[in-house]
Amino acid sequence: MLLIHCPYCDEQRAEIEFAYAGEAHIARPPDPSALSDEDWSRYLFIRSNPRGRHHERWRHIHGCGRFFNAVRDTVTDTFEATYKAGEPRR
């Protein structure tokens, strides 16, 4: 089980308190109807799925309830950092 540091509670807690919420830093296009099908499909479906550093969102669902971002290595499952939503990509 992963141990995850919530940047809001500033505590290291067990994974069962958290919900994974997919890749981080994917901004919804401001004007979807202006997008080509290609670009809309990229936004909806294409994820980086890297073998290595992955930026991802987690929600401390059984804690403060807030979303935050994390950088985790997908080969070792080690967290490099967690940081608050809205902070720049690490």
Binding site: M1, Y20, H54, E56, R72, D77
Partner: peptide, 13 residues
């Protein structure tokens, strides 16, 4: 498991 990974293992819960 809930998260993206290549580790070939998961959590006990």
């Amino acid at each position: 498991d809930q998260y993206v990974s290549y580790s070939q293992r998961g959590a006990l819960h």
